[in-house]
């Protein structure tokens, strides 16, 4: 990675074919790791494109958003039939994430790329913290909540030998956090699945598997909201987005097949350490370097 970056900085001529091949390969890796760790490909493809391949962060954000829509929709297609996704909770919270995403994407035009890079670095460090702390809480018994019941959000999900019912909690707090997740997604071009899962799993007390699948279901809609704004702004370059979208999509499909066999504990540690380094480099370059 380091060698490659130096090579490009020194002005080595690289053709479009070679560049597309490099970006495509990096994207397969990002999609694979993103799906194995549950963090999504966007969070790793943007640092790869900007830090290692010298791509302007605005093009990187456009291409990443596109890949986020592809992987989220592809994964949701599988989950939605298994019955884990709570479509009502998803639809309700999408109002918040879409508003947040539009605000974030709109604000992005008025914020210097260096500041975006620093914010991105902070989100990377936060994701690394979540990955390394390795938290999994399973649905505890939660009393029915008036607002959630009124909104008919309580549901059930398949467990071995039947279904288990659950109640939803803290709708206003969860909705607020979702608006923030949407803004982060719109500003930085990532799915911000980690924040969405926190909102549903820790705040609204949905079962973990329901939270992760419903988050995935929502990510595509959130990303599509900001993608419209970025498309009009000219951030979405077809020649760059092509290898990113196809690569991340392919990598994440392979990742979901491997998921049952892979040692996710070791993977989480390696991935966590990698995004700590990328996060520090993003912040450093944003503050003292050129972006």
């Amino acid at each position: 990675m380091l060698r490659l970056r130096n090579g490009i900085e020194k002005g080595t001529i690289i053709t479009t074919l070679e560049f597309s091949g490099l970006v495509g390969t990096a994207s397969v890796g990002a999609g694979l790791l993103g799906s194995l760790t549950g963090l999504g490909g966007g969070i790793i493809i943007i640092p790869l494109l900007t830090l290692c391949l010298g791509v302007d962060i605005r093009y990187a954000i456009g291409a990443s958003l596109i890949s986020v829509i592809a992987t989220s929709s592809g994964a949701a297609a599988a989950y939605v039939r298994e019955g884990f996704i709570n479509i009502r909770v998803g639809m309700f919270l999408e109002v918040a994430t879409v508003c947040g995403a539009l605000a974030g994407a709109y604000a992005a035009a008025f914020i210097a790329p260096e500041i975006i890079a620093v914010l991105f670095g902070l989100v990377l460090l936060h994701s690394a913290y979540l990955t390394l702390s390795g938290h999994v809480v399973d649905g505890k018994d939660i009393q029915p909540n008036r607002l959630a019941t009124l909104l008919r959000m309580n549901g059930s999900y398949p467990v071995s030998g039947g279904t288990r019912a659950y109640n939803v909690n803290a709708v206003p707090a969860g909705t607020g956090l979702m608006a923030l997740a949407g803004a982060v997604s719109g500003l930085l071009g990532i799915g911000s699945g980690a924040l969405k899962v926190i909102a549903m799993d820790r705040v609204m007390k949905l079962p973990f598997k329901v939270s992760t699948t419903t988050s995935n279901f929502m990510i595509g809609v959130t990303a599509a909201a900001s993608a419209g704004v970025y498309l009009h702004r000219g951030y979405i370059d077809p020649a760059l987005s092509m290898p990113v979208m196809l690569g991340v999509l392919g990598g994440s499909i392979a990742g979901s097949r491997l998921l049952t066999k892979a040692n996710t504990r070791v993977l989480r540690i390696v991935f966590g350490a990698t995004i700590v380094m990328l996060g520090i480099e993003m912040i450093y370059k944003g503050l003292w370097g050129r972006f």
């Binding site: 596109i66 829509i69 929709s73 599509a224 419209g228 077809p238």
Partner: peptide, 8 residues
């Protein structure tokens, strides 16, 4: 890419 944005 536009078709993809239209999927959600």
């Amino acid at each position: 890419l536009l078709m993809l944005i239209a999927v959600p």
